[in-house]
Amino acid sequence: MGTTLWQRTWRNVARNKAMYVMVIPGLLYLLVNNYLPMLGLVIAFKDVDFAKGIWHSDWIGFKNFEYLFKTSDAWLITRNTLGYNAVFIVVNFAFSIAIAIFLNEITSKFFSRFYQSVLLLPYLISMIIVSYLVFALLSQDTGMMNHTILPLFGIKEISWYNEPVYWPFILVIVNLWKNAGFLCVVFLAAIIGIDKEYYEAATLDGASKWKQIRLITIPLISPVIVMMLLLFIGRIFYADFGLFFQVPMESGPIMNATNVIDTYVYRGLMQIGDIGMSAAAGCYQSIVGFVLVLLSNYVVRKINKDQALF
């Protein structure tokens, strides 16, 4: 029945000409900017020799991937990467949704704008600078924690950069602090987009504010939440390099708590600078993310077909 499919497609094109034209620039761009370079993933399977050129270099199968698995740290970095990102998603989503909802409740225009601007501040500062700010707090010699805050409670000074137990918390907090503003803007836009009539009707029915939030706001922004969730799951095997590399200041004793796949790859390849091996890491990360997203999209589709991405 090939012809009917063609006919159907053609009819759809004829009826929605404008929409077909509209997507062209975007798709063209993705083709050039994203899909064309993807051909380069072959580098991950090659022993690149520039005398032969990239395309004609020898195939070496999965040899470039070996270093990711051969180390005794393979389990550790996998666990850290997935574990931290999972916690980040839960904590960041919970907080930024709460912030967005509260922001929406603020009636004073001045305060609403003030909070919004201020919340975005951390998102604007580069991770290297953030690492200095964290250092300002935690430095053993001169940090504020050890100098002013801990003595107030009569606690002895702590060697923050040498004690791995604190770092899961520090990293989660820094990540939240840095990214909550960004996520919150997304959710706020979704909340603002909700038709005010729903709330008016609910108020007339005597529904309390809490009830309105629970029964109107959350359900109506849930498509955005689910979509964002899927996007973040797709990147779950990519760690925020800046956060994990800069903020711990490369301190060795805490590395079991701060080493993730991206930092591992960076440190490992610093000297060798092998493009095949770094391409292999990217490839591995993408595939894990891809599998996880397919799974979660499948689950979402089972629950609510409309909210699935594809």
């Binding site: 993705l30 050039v32 994203n34 370079p37 993933l41 797709g234 993408s286 993310g289 594809f310």
Partner: peptide
């Protein structure tokens, strides 16, 4: 969506 998951990496993008 696929473009979010996979990218060719620095070198191929640079070459393009």
């Amino acid at each position: 969506f696929f473009t979010i998951l996979f990218n060719g990496g620095l070198v191929p993008t640079y070459l393009v």
